[in-house]
Simulated scan of single mutants.
Amino acid sequence: MTAIELRGVTHRYEGVEMRFDLAVGAGEWLALIGPSGAGKSTLLDLVAGFLRPESGTVRLQGVDRTRDEPATRPISMMFQDNNLFAHLTAEENVAIGIEPRARLGRAARERARSALAEVGLEGFAKRRPSDMSGGERQRVALARVILRERPILLLDEPFAALGPALRAEMLALVASLRTRSPRPPTIVMVTHHPDDARGFADRLAFLEDGHIRLTGPVAELLDRSADSRLRAYLGERAPPREGL
């Protein structure tokens, strides 16, 4: 089953037309790489519904969602900014993902604490964002995503501000939670660190000038692609041909 399908989806930004044609299988982890301004975050915003395409179709799990509001789409999204409410505790910030009310019920709080425990934050329920590190705040945001149990997860560089070791730890946590899920979510991840895709993503897409230029297995594109545009982005020369 195809979880995400973009057919001729266009968006114009500062006079430049971006166009995306893409299919992502159910349960697949796709990493998007490319220079700044290539359209990576724009692609995610079109899938999530934060932007409306000028033309084309956005289908999610086989359903046309092109004109649907973001809240009605089967999607959770994590941003660089963890989007936590400063005045709420970790427990409340997580629970609000399923019960967006001023007074949270006991069941929602218990589920939130369970989700916090899953991301290694057992005992953090009453802490506020100001009392946590950057990595801990992103764990809270991840716990909220877990609790929502949406079949599609969009990651717009949520761990970019973390150091390399902590960023790898967070990606490993996402991978672990995905593996343990009875219905692994489809993940589309934007990153400026191509190595983040290694060991986690199933497939890589290289974007440039608002178009998807290449897609393929991670190792094939990062290690063996001879495409000059991708090699220039990676700061490398094309690999030598076999036998030479």
Rank of each mutant, 00 (worst) to 15 (best):
A219N: 12
I212F: 04
L121Y: 03
L147Y: 09
L234P: 01
G97V: 02
G216T: 06
H11W: 07
L51I: 07
P53Q: 05
P158H: 09
K126C: 03
P74F: 09
S41K: 12
L32P: 02
L154S: 08
T72D: 13
R67M: 07
P70V: 13
D64Q: 08
R213Q: 12
I187V: 15
H211G: 01
L147Q: 08
E99L: 12
V174T: 02
M132R: 03
L154D: 06
G235F: 08
F20N: 04
A197N: 02
M18H: 14
G39S: 12
S176V: 04
R101Q: 11
G210F: 07
G134V: 12
M1G: 08
E220S: 14
T2K: 10
H192C: 04
P151T: 05
R12C: 14
S228F: 00
G49P: 02
I96N: 00
L221E: 06
A175L: 12
E69N: 09
N82L: 05
V140I: 15
Q80L: 13
F159S: 00
G243N: 09
R7L: 10
A161I: 01
G134A: 11
E208I: 06
A232H: 14
L166C: 01
E220F: 00
F206Y: 14
V174H: 01
I96H: 04
V190F: 03
D68I: 02
L153V: 15
A172T: 15
V218R: 00
P194T: 07
P151H: 09
L214T: 03
R128H: 15
R59N: 08
L30Y: 04
A165N: 05
D81P: 03
Q138G: 11
P182D: 11
A31H: 01
L6H: 05
I75P: 00
F200T: 10
P164Q: 09
T66G: 06
A86H: 11
M77R: 09
R213D: 09
A197S: 12
G49C: 08
L244A: 14
S76H: 07
R213K: 14
R19S: 07
S225C: 08
L44M: 11
L116H: 12
L173R: 02
G37D: 07
L234F: 11
A172E: 13
Q80A: 15
R106M: 11
G34H: 08
L155H: 00
L222M: 12
R73W: 09
V145C: 11
S181T: 06
L155K: 02
A172Q: 14
E28L: 10
A3P: 10
A86P: 13
E157A: 01
P70L: 11
G199V: 03
R213C: 14
I75M: 09
A175S: 13
Y13K: 10
R148F: 10
E99P: 04
A197E: 10
L244V: 12
A107K: 14
E236S: 13
P184V: 03
H192G: 03
R229I: 04
Y233L: 09
R128C: 00
D227C: 10
R101I: 14
N93H: 01
E208F: 03
A26E: 15
T42E: 08
A48S: 12
R103L: 14
